[in-house]
Simulated scan of single mutants.
Amino acid sequence: MSFSLDGIDYSFSSRLPKNAERSSQYILLRVLLGAADVGRGAVRFKQSMDLSVWPAIKQSSRGAGSVRAYLSANVGVSVDEFIKITTADNRRLFQEILAEFSNYFVATQRGAHATAFVYLYRTLERLSFSLPLLYFSTSSDFVGTFNDLKALFKEGGGGDLDLLRKFLLQGKLIDPLVLSMPRRMDFSPSPNGARFYAAVTSRFTGFTLADPTRLQVEVEYRRVLGLFVMIRNRFFHLRSGDGQKNISSRDLHDADEFFCIANEMFCNFLAVLTLSSTARKYRK
């Protein structure tokens, strides 16, 4: 079965449940759990990775089955019930998140990996303020929620990304064990690997491992946000005279090749955030 939404074509291995195409949350689950093909025109990206876990793994279940299993384990509702309760809830937010992820996969299939990174960063900015609010809106502990929010805002002045950083470090949404779990980024397959390795290790100090011989770095989930923002700021801002050590095109030689390697980690990071918050919001 297939259908189009907001300029993106979605294909599935079997017929969708009734009204599934009206629930952006359900389609988002299918895409991020590795149970959908995403495309535009002749471009098709087969998304077969289960991005709900860190690090991501190959999806081993059939399309519809993977969603049923995820909802049963993490939300406690059936597929039909999930579609019913999500069809008219926060439609614009989830439509936009679905569109950004989908455009990321299309750009990735085209080999436009720097462009794909932009879609990921747009997703991050969309989540940075709404995600903590979604979480706290579901809490039944008024005093606890008030104290948690007060802790987030008391430092002030950090903006929405700093709000998200502090929220993650509270360990309320993402399990602390996951927060401490590292994922590896390997630049060695690229002929420009040494350049890529130097570009990130000379500007980010939060790696748990940095191996100049193997051209590999490891970073815990809790620190991926900092790496994500650093790369965006240092590569997409190249203003002279501001005292920042920016990443120039000369530093990388091939920006698409660099982002091809980096984007997989950032997509996984965002997918875990998205799916965890979705599960929390609709959990029984």
Rank of each mutant, 00 (worst) to 15 (best):
L164C: 02
V77D: 09
N268A: 04
K281C: 07
S137C: 06
T138W: 03
P55Y: 07
A88G: 10
V31Y: 01
Q95F: 03
A56E: 08
P191T: 08
L238I: 15
C260K: 15
K58V: 14
L252H: 01
M185D: 04
S2P: 05
F207G: 01
G76V: 08
R91V: 14
D160Y: 12
S102L: 05
Y221D: 01
N74D: 03
R110P: 01
V118G: 11
N74R: 14
C267V: 13
T278D: 06
R239H: 12
C267N: 00
K281E: 10
L152G: 00
L177I: 14
Q109V: 04
E81A: 15
P176H: 08
L16R: 00
P189A: 06
S137P: 01
A114K: 03
S14M: 06
S276I: 04
E21T: 01
M1P: 12
G144Y: 08
L127I: 10
L273F: 10
L169F: 09
R40G: 09
G226I: 03
S61D: 14
I174N: 07
L173Q: 09
A88C: 01
E21N: 10
L120P: 00
L275G: 01
L134V: 03
S240E: 12
G111I: 00
S202E: 13
S240D: 12
T108E: 13
Y119P: 00
P17C: 03
D80K: 07
Y26N: 02
H113K: 09
F236V: 01
Q25H: 06
Q244S: 12
L209H: 11
L152C: 11
G241T: 01
D9C: 07
R280Q: 13
L29T: 07
V43A: 08
L133D: 13
N19Q: 06
F101S: 02
F142E: 15
S52Q: 11
S137A: 12
A199D: 10
G156K: 13
L225W: 12
S52H: 00
K281T: 12
M185Y: 00
N192S: 13
F129S: 12
Y104C: 11
L33F: 04
E21Q: 14
L28V: 03
E125T: 04
V79E: 15
S13E: 15
D9E: 14
T213Y: 01
H113R: 01
N263I: 03
A36Y: 08
G39E: 12
F136G: 00
K172A: 10
F105D: 08
D80F: 06
Y119A: 12
C260L: 14
V106Y: 09
R195M: 09
Y282K: 06
D256R: 08
L164Q: 03
L227K: 10
L273D: 05
E220I: 08
Q59C: 00
F136V: 04
I83S: 09
S277D: 11
L252G: 05
R203N: 07
F236A: 04
Q59G: 05
F3W: 09
R222D: 10
S277H: 06
R91T: 13
L275A: 09
